[in-house]
Design a protein around this nucleic acid. Structure first.
Lengths: 149, 149
DNA sequence: AGACTCGTAACTAAGTAAGTTACATGAAAC
DNA sequence: GTTTCATGTAACTTACTTAGTTACGAGTCT
């Protein structure tokens, strides 16, 4: 798992879980999907469990499953549950008395609030089901291609 | 200069430069504004020079000045010149053959392209002159307050 | 010539996040 | 109830990124 790919990796995992709703997948299995360590998986998606996006169970036959239907899980929720920041830049004061800095921070914060609202809105329109559907589309395509060739 | 505050710090510097258009400011002076090192300043705003946002001159009386009027410098240009990414998450393939991953990356890239266009558009509407104007507003306010109290 | 300032390379230090190890906790199977 | 399997989590290591620093060459004004 590369840096800054937590959202992408988590989505990868979740789509696999959407494809396997009949039984739970272990962190071990999930880890192989994104070429990493089971512990990293557990740590990464722990927040999703708290948000009800996935459920986990221990012991024999345990593992991870979606907490609700893929249609009801939006990328906005996933991103939020991961604790991801949509915008990368910081605006914490470094010289609290400086009016120039205050003006800069005010402008940047306004922008940030508006931008985050916008991005969250966009992300909330994409669901896990959409990704799964796209996956199936690609799967069909490969199938057709294989027959054709 | 804290991490992830490059945009904010650079704006701070640029507004100061907008306030001092009659003469150049040295990296040394700029560095004190954002509590850092002259070399860090030079390194950080080197990209702005290449983009024509600022000019630099060497030797006695040298330093940095705005390359054009503050009204003509947008935050979008500044952000781009700094090489900042507006969106933090990565979408590079880690398992090139996996159709699930392909679907995830496709969705994320679509979102990213659209989101970046949107953010850049928003940032292009804010100019250095706007920040300077806000600074002056704050300055007046303090003045009034001082008189009142 | 001397003082000053940028340009840049090379190195150091600090902070962040992934990867790893280890072990406790809980649940199912036998 | 013991064994096996899986999560939960803490602690540590490693890799990477970026700010900070030092040093010095090159250009410019007095």
């Amino acid at each position: 798992m590369k840096r800054n790919s937590r959202l992408s990796s988590t989505l990868h995992i979740l789509v696999h879980m959407a494809e396997t709703q009949e039984h739970a997948l272990t962190s071990e299995q999930l880890a192989t999907f994104i070429h990493t360590n089971p512990v990293v998986v557990r740590r990464t998606i722990a927040g999703l469990r708290d948000a009800g996006i996935v459920t986990s169970s221990r012991g024999h036959g345990g593992g991870w499953q979606l907490g609700r239907a893929p249609e009801k899980i939006s990328l906005a929720e996933i991103s939020a549950a991961l604790g991801e920041t949509l915008l990368p830049f910081g605006t914490e004061p470094e010289s609290p008395g400086c009016l120039v800095e205050q003006a800069v921070i005010a402008a940047l914060d306004d922008f940030r609030v508006e931008a985050e609202r916008l991005l969250a809105e966009k992300l909330s329109r994409i669901t896990l089901a959409d990704l799964a559907a796209d996956f199936h589309r690609r799967y069909e395509l490969i199938g057709v291609t294989s027959h054709a060739v």
